[in-house]
Structure formats: C-alpha cells, structure tokens
Amino acid sequence: MHPTWRCRACGAHWPCQPARLGLLVEYRHDRTALLVYLGGLMAEAGEQLGHATGLHERFLGWARVRGGTMFHVNHEPGAEIHHTDPFAAPTGQRSPVRRLRGRLAAPVTLWTAPGPAGLTVSSTLVAEGEPDRLLGLVDPESDLWAVVEEAGRFAVAPLGPPHRQLADRFAGLFPSPGGLFAIGAWADTPYGPVPADAGGWAGCRLDAAREYGWGLLVEATIEAVDLAEETAPLLHYRGRYRELG
C-alpha cells in the first residue's frame, strides 16, 4: 500500500515474509534481476517514506545470495533448512494485534469462482439464519475478488491436512506451473471448481463488500451446501498449518 509501504494482506512492512518467498520463487533463476527490481522499489520507497532507516536491508539485504535453499514457513517435518524463519521480523518489531490474530486458530478454506480463480482464506465465518450467511476477509487486489465481483457468486470449500500444498499454492506461497488449477482433481460447480477430495462446499451469492482494516469484508448468502464424508480440518495457527489432536 502506498505511501505507507505496508502489505495490504498482513499489514507488515513490505516486502513481508510471504512477499519475499513469492519473489524468491518468481526470480529463482535470475537473482540479479530480482535485486535490480528491488533496488528500484527501494528508491521509490525512500522518496515516499522520507528519512526511514533500514531500507537497504529491508529491500535488498535479505535477497542477496547466502547459500542454501529458501526457507518455507509451512514446511513438512524434516524438510526445514533453518531452525527459524530467517525473514521473520524481530520480536520487538512485531505488531501486537497481528500476534493476537496469530493466536486465534482459524480453519483454512479455499474460495473459488467461475473463470476460474481461487484464493486461500483463513477468515471464513458462517452465520445461521434466514437466509444463512457467510462472511470472510479477502485481499481486494486478488484475482479472486476481481472475478467474484463480476460473477456475483463463489464457492467455499473447507480444506484438510492433505491440502497443505494446495493452500500454499492458492496463497501465492508455492509455485504453480501451468496455473493454479493444473494440479489435482477438481469438481465443477455453478459457483466455481472445488477440490474433489474436499469435505464439501458451499455455493454463495455475493451480497456486499466493504473495506475492513487492510482487507475486504465480503458478505454473501449461502445458496447451496454439498457435504461429503466428514474430514479433519486444516487449521492456521501462529503462522503455520496445524491439525487437531
């Protein structure tokens, strides 16, 4: 977000940890081009932020070749390169509100829309009533929102432990050669494709959306529900995927 140079999704100083991971994936074959790109952004940020300190390390220091392989925050057990996240902000610089949000375990869901487009969302809430409603916070600059706004409908599917990589792919944290929907089995619905092995899905009609914090609060009416055999949920807690038990 300009001119504050904060991430619209998480509110941290940009490039935040997910943005750095995404940039490393995008420029994995040309680190020089990445440094040139970040250098231009650093100059622009310097003009807008005035006399801010630490811009060189913030924009360029982390991207220099240091050997090894990049760290992945949602790594599988035994696959980590570092014991801790090398891109994480020091404890004293972390937002207390973001730390509070991290302590609220949230179900991981996949939102999709005709087109297709999709986005991993960990802020989904269902409200029973007449009619039944669904709410969620999404990135207003995501491809998903552009499609949902035009189509007026979308599907929501709860994800399970086997969907860790899928969740990262649709969150922009994992490469998706061939497109987001090129891998895995998908079931077509009038509201958007859903993973064939998901625990079910809900078809929603868009009612309204408004800015809420750095996100977009989406309100919708649930028009259809298709529940498969009950499966264990995938949870997001303190920056990592977790399971019950």
Rank of each mutant, 00 (worst) to 15 (best):
M1R: 04
T4I: 02
W5R: 10
C7P: 01
R8C: 01
A12I: 00
H13Y: 06
H13D: 12
C16A: 05
C16G: 04
P18R: 11
P18V: 14
A19E: 15
R20L: 04
L21R: 14
L23D: 03
V25Q: 13
V25D: 15
E26R: 12
Y27F: 15
Y27C: 07
R28C: 10
R31A: 13
Y37Q: 05
Y37V: 03
L38V: 01
L38S: 03
G40W: 12
L41P: 00
E47M: 05
E47N: 01
Q48A: 14
L49A: 02
G50A: 05
A52T: 12
G54W: 09
F59C: 06
L60P: 00
R64T: 11
R66F: 07
G67I: 04
G67N: 05
G67V: 05
G68E: 13
G68C: 03
M70F: 10
F71R: 05
H72M: 02
E76S: 12
P77A: 13
A79C: 09
E80N: 11
E80Y: 06
T84R: 10
D85F: 02
P86I: 15
F87M: 11
A89N: 01
A89K: 07
T91I: 11
T91K: 07
T91Q: 08
G92H: 06
S95T: 09
P96V: 14
R98M: 01
G102Q: 07
G102S: 05
R103A: 07
R103T: 13
A105Q: 10
A106Y: 02
T109R: 01
G115Q: 08
P116W: 14
A117H: 10
A117F: 01
L119F: 02
L119A: 14
T120Q: 00
L125P: 00
A127R: 11
D132K: 09
D132G: 13
V138I: 15
D139L: 02
P140L: 04
P140N: 12
D143T: 15
W145S: 07
V147Q: 14
V147K: 14
V148G: 03
V148L: 07
E149Q: 15
G152L: 07
F154N: 04
V156A: 13
P162F: 06
P162I: 05
R164V: 14
A167I: 12
D168W: 07
A171S: 07
P175G: 01
P175Q: 00
P175S: 03
S176W: 03
S176I: 04
P177K: 00
G179C: 09
G179H: 10
G179D: 08
F181D: 04
A182D: 03
I183E: 09
G184R: 00
A185D: 14
D188E: 15
P190N: 04
G192L: 10
V194Y: 05
A196K: 03
D197I: 01
D197S: 05
G199C: 06
G200N: 08
G203H: 06
C204M: 08
R205W: 07
A209C: 09
A209G: 06
Y212M: 11
G213K: 12
G213D: 08
G213L: 11
G215R: 15
G215A: 11
G215P: 11
L217V: 12
L217D: 08
T221W: 00
A224G: 00
L227T: 14
A228V: 08
A228W: 04
L235I: 03
L235Q: 01
H236Y: 15
Y237Q: 08
R238K: 10
R240P: 02
R240E: 15
E243C: 02
E243N: 00
G245F: 01
